[in-house]
Design a protein around this nucleic acid. Structure first.
Lengths: 203, 203, 203, 203
DNA sequence: GATGAATGAGATTTCATTCAT
DNA sequence: TATGAATGAAATCTCATTCAT
């Protein structure tokens, strides 16, 4: 026998905590239902607040969604970049990054949905948040590839191209796995992906 | 004051031609506005028909959209596979396929949007049409990779994995280029991608 | 194994026959689906003609429907009045009329639906066709009741009132039976109804 | 040029009151325009609310309509049965019921329309609400007729039949008056109807 | 004349957003 | 400040009617 303990009618919390609650709920609901089908009321319920509160903290549904995506992107970025700097060898940095990238999506499968949704619904915005973040980090990664080249461990390709390739490869892998309904964790494939990247299929 | 020169009167056409007109218009409008924002009336105008005609030939907006995606996928598949069989060398087959794959999206940039939209809006459907088609062709491509392995031109990776990798790579490349707003044609990169695939960045 | 023998593409029939075919089909479909839900196309199919033909013979859906109701009313009127004049005794005339009235609706249950539909959908028209016909016959029936009164067989009520009462009684009975889902044939009750009418429940 | 003085702003009312407002407006509009032609927006205006409010309180147009009919039926039932129990003599009970039945429809002429509409548009539903209510009350009324029979004041007919007859008679009378456009109040005829019922036209 | 493909007005319903409480 | 009742714009889809063939 469950007892309904209805949410207390009004509660006071610091605004920052409210925001987090709402963004967490939004990530869940947007990922599960898609941007259009997600009902703001449903998000409000999940977050344990009234609709009005959402509209006080976010301009509108679009702003709420973009904040949600941004938060997800921050989490991804933090997860990937966290312990990279402590690694000395650039190849190992790359291998670790791939692994942690895959690992993040294994743990947060909804995040792919958020990225898809963003692009699907906000075609007009300049550039998806994902690619903005990617660009921000580009310089750092480029330098790592250049170091690798200087060490003679990249031969035939320009660092620029290599960076793009790996970006496309892992990005494509995440989408493919998610969209094709693949069940195997991505992170299991990270070594194979890295090997391919470094050695190619002939190697 | 502009004078609208409305579509003259009603014209009769064979059903097949009408379908094509409508699917062409739909591909345009869905790609430009997204599934949700695309107004069926707008598609009708583009196709030069009345709304009713669309609803006579397609059950509803969803069916129209999915037909549009399917048609795009057929076009892609035909474009890629067309002249592959005439090529003898399996490596060359793969290189050509990559090139033609990229080339298709250069010529039909809206197609990526359609694929994104499908996934974004119809999360419930088993599997996106793209992956259904991909699976259909899998056996054929697998055989080519196996031949390559038998010829000793693939060393370290299983044909299965190699196939997945290349799938992810090109798929990711198309998305990346489109989503990141890249302006350079994909097909220009096809050689570099193939080189990476075969030789890796170390090679 | 049935062989589809599709309706020959075009046939020529005298207009009068066409009209009858269409009205028969219309009576069926309108009774089964109701005025609003009845699709003109469906009626055309039932009648074995094209939609255009219907619109050549009838101004519009409304006119078609009203013609259908009128035809039904003519049939009812004919069925009831047919052999009344050959009967000598006025009481027997009334008893026979009641019986034939009920009998008609037993045989043509859809007719009630048509009358209901007419009223439901064409509230604006002066008076339903049923009541127009009823009024036309009123003088004749009034005379019969007056003869009955002159013969001393109606005591306490005016012929006018008696006529109205019986009208209401049988009309109500038909509706009740139909609307309440009664399964017993109306005509079985005609004697009881007539007895009540003549003698009341005390008698 | 008329100046619209639009409903001021939004007001808050208890749900029960809102429901009543809406049902009152719906009864008016459905009776005047018929189920199909009645625009929900029009009902909303009459009720002084927005369309959305109607859809918050009722699942859809159909549910709104059926609630309206049910409410009307409750009102009728209450009006008829109200003071019957205080009457001692069963014949007087019946006479009073007839009178109050007619009186109700004189005061609420639209109610007949609602009943017609219900049947016309929802032919699929098991049984119209009117007949469901009628059946509920049947046992009580049957008992009254049986008491009358025991008192020797009904001779020749079974109580069952007598009850059906009177039901048909008054039901038919209401329809007839309404449909034939009769202007005289029904309640003026109630004595004559009762006399006919008890004594017949011969008596 | 006969057909049925083509048309588009019109009505229901949803849900983001507002604002009275 | 927090709530959720109230709002109404917007979009799908149907089907009576027309008219090219």
């Amino acid at each position: 026998m469950t007892i309904n303990t209805p949410r207390p009618t009004r509660t006071h919390k610091p605004a920052e905590e409210r925001r987090r609650d709402i963004l967490d709920a939004a990530a869940l609901v947007f990922a599960a239902q898609g941007y259009r089908c997600a009902d703001v009321e449903c998000i409000a319920e999940h977050a344990g607040v009234g609709k009005g509160t959402i509209y006080r903290l976010f301009d509108n549904k679009e702003a709420l969604f973009l904040s949600t995506v941004e938060k997800a992107m921050e989490d991804l970025s933090a997860h990937v970049n966290e312990s990279i700097d402590e690694i000395e060898d650039p190849e190992q940095q790359i291998r670790t990054a791939i692994h942690r990238y895959f690992d993040f999506f294994d743990r947060n499968p909804g995040t792919v949905e958020l990225f898809i949704q963003e692009r699907a619904e906000f075609r007009n915005r300049e550039k998806p948040i994902y690619f903005i973040y990617q660009e921000n980090r580009r310089a750092v990664w480029l330098e790592r590839f250049e170091r690798l080249a200087r060490l003679g461990r990249i031969r035939s390709v320009s660092p620029e191209l290599a960076l793009d390739m790996i970006g496309n490869l892992v990005y494509g892998a995440v989408f493919s796995q998610r969209l094709s309904g693949g069940q195997r964790p991505l992170s299991e494939q990270s070594d194979a992906v890295a090997d391919l990247l470094f050695n190619g299929i002939k190697g």
